[in-house]
Design a protein around this nucleic acid. Structure first.
Length: 259
DNA sequence: ATGGCATGTAACACATGA
């Protein structure tokens, strides 16, 4: 069973690319972020024709999250975080899919730090961390997949020195937040498989970042222990980043053994 | 330190992103 997360950076502008990738990979569950489309403009018909069911939460221009499922109907469990610091921003959706509770998240970028956007990111991460703990307490298989906008460690960025003061990387705050999730018991799937070298799911549009392999690891799939035991493989579909009109993110995925 | 690129909306320039 393949589960993927993809910051698509505009779902309608990249619909053909998305449909071709779904057809190629036959992904079973897909978490999408940054739909950049209002609720009414989600491409329902095309995704249904491609064999997917879905839940989504759209917002005009920015943010927006969706969970796609092939062959089964996702059962929505929540939109937005409990005590969401700004419910007008669509950054979290959660559904039960085939016996797995799936949380799809899009953490605020937080730049510039310090400032109101930075404060918002920290508050969002705080409430998310509280919710993540509650999910673990349910003792059911859970995956929290999405664009965390966190570089977890020095080796997850091409040039750590350059990013020390960035809201994606500040150690006492965002890196600490990620570490505290792992401490709760979550397993970062990609790093578990790729222990020697990071696989980047993001390259900036600027300065030929992709050609220089100047990537960042921002998209993560965190597993509860029920799923860690089933983890077979993980990777990034980096070819997606090379296509014309690509998102600046590529899909990150895991393969789980069937129960 | 700046701006390089890209998105959707539509005030055809802007806010936002990473």
């Amino acid at each position: 069973m393949r589960i993927a997360t993809y910051n698509i950076n505009g779902t309608n502008g990249r619909l053909e690319t998305l449909l071709a990738w779904l057809d190629d990979t036959q992904s079973d569950i897909v978490c999408l972020q940054d739909l950049k489309a209002p609720q009414a403009k989600f491409p329902e018909r095309q995704l249904k024709e491609a064999g997917y069911a879905y839940v989504w939460h759209g917002q005009s221009r920015w943010n927006g999250v969706a969970i796609l499922s092939r062959g089964s109907e996702p059962v929505l469990t929540r939109r937005g975080l409990p005590r969401d610091p700004d419910p007008s921003q669509c950054r979290y959706i959660e559904a039960a899919v085939n016996g797995v509770l799936v949380g799809c998240l899009y953490v605020p970028n937080g730049n510039p730090a310090p400032g109101p956007k930075w404060d918002y990111k920290l508050e969002w991460l705080k409430q998310f961390t509280v919710h993540a703990k509650q999910l673990l307490a349910l003792d059911v298989p859970v995956i929290l997949a999405g664009d965390y906008n966190i570089i977890p460690a020095e080796h997850d960025v091409y040039n750590p020195d350059r990013w020390q003061d960035d809201a994606l990387f500040l150690p006492q705050h965002v890196r600490k937040a990620y570490a505290s999730l792992l401490k709760q018991g979550w397993c970062g799937a990609t790093a578990t498989i790729h222990t020697d070298k990071p696989v980047y799911p993001f390259w900036d549009y600027l300065r030929q970042a992709r050609e220089r392999s100047a990537g960042l690891r921002l998209d993560h799939l965190l597993l509860s222990h029920h799923l860690t035991a089933r983890l077979k493989d993980a990777g990034v579909d980096r070819d997606m980043r090379g296509r014309s009109k690509a998102s600046d993110h590529a899909p990150a995925w895991i393969d789980l053994a069937r129960e």
